[in-house]
């Protein structure tokens, strides 16, 4: 990693923030319900999943709506962030070809947009807690801790996707499919213990499964993740981020020719 490049990213922090906030505002500017979409969207998704899984499939997880909601919010931050990033450079080809600024600000700001949306969705969670008089366990204050690997993973995957999608234009479609499959392979609508042990250990190779389990443990089950889980998740997140950053820097230059 070159410090010069990292410094230029730091110097552009207000541009990153402006891009992220502007993108967020644009999403809601031309809609009737405006900002409320950010709350309605997870609510609608939640309702559907709740009906299907608690009545039809008879899931017996306690506080199932909250379980679903927290998992959805965290997963959405990841899936939305990576999907938005995959298109962020291609969509702004004009500016990339006509001005010089570190291109990395584009995927970073897309990920930040996704995280800002996640914070709004958390308001829904808080509303739920209040409405249903749910007693949040004290360890719920540890939730921000799980956002660190979540951010590293989301950005680490977003960086190469954003450049690869310029070179191979179907990358974003492929990634969309992977993300949809990932939703069902991650313990969001179920808990991991519905599987036999050997399948569980395969599922837990996915760092997102750990992050979502942590959030469930923090907000619902009043548990703290095991040391092994913390080491594994942070380790994988940092590796994913470093690889993603390296791939981005490698492809950044060749990519521009293909815009």
């Amino acid at each position: 990693m070159s410090w010069f490049y990292l410094k230029s990213v730091y110097d552009n922090r207000s541009l990153i923030w402006l891009l992220a906030v502007t993108d967020l505002r644009l999403r809601y500017r031309n809609s009737v319900l405006g900002f409320f979409w950010s709350i309605l969207e997870p609510l609608l998704m939640l309702t559907v999943l709740y009906v299907v899984f608690s009545f039809i499939l008879r899931s017996n997880i306690q506080n199932y709506p909250l379980f679903l909601l927290t998992g959805l919010i965290v997963w959405n931050a990841f899936s939305r962030g990576t999907v938005m990033s995959s298109n962020c450079i291609l969509a702004r080809g004009g500016i990339v070809l006509n001005a010089f600024f570190p291109r990395i600000v584009l995927p970073i700001s897309a990920v930040i947009t996704s995280f800002l949306m996640m914070f709004f969705e958390m308001l829904v969670y808080i509303a739920f807690v209040i409405i249903f008089h749910f007693q949040s366990p004290p360890v719920a204050i540890l939730v921000p801790f799980s956002l660190i690997p979540l951010f590293l993973l989301t950005l680490g995957i977003s960086l190469p996707l954003s450049t690869l999608n310029v070179i191979y234009r179907d990358i974003s479609y492929i990634w969309n499919v992977i993300v949809q499959a990932g939703f069902f392979l991650t313990p969001i609508i179920y808990t991991i213990d519905i599987f036999p042990k050997n399948i569980q250990s395969i599922i837990m190779l996915n760092p997102m499964a750990h992050v979502i389990n942590w959030v469930h443990d923090f907000t619902l089950f009043n548990k703290i993740p095991t040391f092994g889980s913390i080491i594994f998740t942070f380790g994988v997140s940092i590796i994913v981020f470093v690889i993603g950053y390296t791939v981005f820097r490698r492809l950044e230059d060749t990519m521009v020719d293909k815009l």
Partner: peptide, 12 residues
């Protein structure tokens, strides 16, 4: 650079 001026503008 004054290349294609305004190509960085966002219509919305």
């Amino acid at each position: 650079p004054f290349l294609q001026l305004g190509s960085g503008f966002n219509g919305d």
